[in-house]
């Protein structure tokens, strides 16, 4: 294992120190070492927006703390949900008295810890409502959509929910915006290599040389099928088809597209992939309103990419175009 770490058991703690020192305008420490907040949070009169999840997906989750984005984040061990206490402390750090929207991904540990934290928060007088992302089409069939995992579509969910909060929506409005965003998102992953959790010290699973796994999850969960390594154009076709075949896309829709690297794929390759994705979406009658290509939601040192497509209506389009500033996502007002 060739990694730049000090102690494999303290990767998360040591990393958080660096984020705090490098970006004081975006991150403030809290009493809980596993909770960071936007320095101006809680913002008076605004609904608090919280997320959280396991580490190893950077810039997710902490990188989406920022202006007009997430107010506080609960930070877990590598690939492991944060404890309930961290979610609770994040709620407290984000709550201005207007309630908190906790927007997170569908994993057993996160569900359990968030559920406990919401109960604990109620006792402390903090109102929390949740939206659970389930955008990964490869993780369960359409008739079991509630079992699907949340992946990079979470970024669009945070963006829409947080923009609604910044516009002044109440808690129910923020929740509705985030829910609508994720309901209109579909994602799929493609893995070319495994990844290594530093404290484990060896690859988590195996993808043989010359193969790639379509539908792989953000922690290496097995996908739909293992296929021969193909060109970027062929890979784009394999990814686009299952995404646009799933509801709710129809020809004529405008979409936002996010192609995220899984950590070890060079940016140029992500753009080679995107070029074909863009054309294939166009061939299907989907006009790309806005595209994001980069390392937005990764899986340690895995090679590969995820594709997320979100159908837009006027409301979601406005929320996605809303300006924001964070480590993971910064954009000005749409020209």
């Amino acid at each position: 294992m060739q990694r730049l770490i000090n102690d494999p058991d303290n990767v998360v703690e040591d990393g958080v120190k660096g984020y705090l020192k490098a970006h004081p305008e975006l991150f403030a420490a809290t009493a809980n070492a596993r909770v960071l907040k936007y320095p101006r949070a809680p913002i008076a009169g605004k609904v608090g927006v919280v997320t959280g999840g396991g580490s190893g997906h950077e810039p997710a989750f902490l990188g989406y703390v920022g202006e007009n984005l997430v107010d506080a984040v609960a930070i877990g061990e590598i690939f492991s949900s944060p404890p309930a206490r961290a979610f609770l402390d994040a709620f407290a750090a984000a709550d201005s008295g207007q309630g908190v929207a906790c927007l997170y991904g569908n994993y057993a540990g996160d569900n359990m810890n968030v559920k406990m934290a919401v109960k604990m928060a109620a006792k402390e007088g903090i109102t929390v409502k949740t939206v659970v992302a389930n955008d990964d089409v490869a993780s369960a069939p359409r008739d079991q959509i509630e079992k699907r995992r949340g992946v990079a579509g979470e970024i669009f969910m945070w963006k829409a929910g947080a923009a609604a909060a910044a516009e002044g929506a109440g808690l129910d409005g923020v929740i509705a915006a985030a829910q609508k965003a994720i309901d209109n998102c579909r994602s799929i992953g493609l893995g070319l290599t495994s990844c290594t959790i530093p404290a484990v010290g060896k690859p988590n699973f195996t993808i043989e040389a010359g193969k790639m796994e379509l539908g792989i999850g953000h922690h290496g969960e097995p996908g739909i099928e293992v296929v021969d390594l193909a060109s970027a154009d062929q890979a784009a076709e394999m990814m686009v088809r299952p995404v646009i075949e799933d509801v709710p896309f129809t020809a004529g829709d405008e979409v936002a597209v996010l192609v995220s690297g899984l950590g070890a794929t060079p940016l140029v390759e992500l753009h080679i992939l995107y070029a074909k994705i863009h054309d294939l979406l166009g061939d299907a009658g989907l006009a790309t309103h806005r595209a994001y290509v980069g390392n937005y939601f990764t899986s340690l040192d895995m090679m590969g990419a995820t594709l997320t497509v979100m159908r837009l209506d006027d409301e979601i389009k406005r929320l996605i175009d809303h300006p924001c500033h964070s480590l993971g996502l910064t954009q000005g007002r749409q020209a």
Partner: peptide
């Protein structure tokens, strides 16, 4: 365990 390890095993 509940406060520090998270995952599913922390709460369980």
């Amino acid at each position: 365990l509940m406060e520090s390890i998270g995952g599913s095993m922390g709460p369980l």
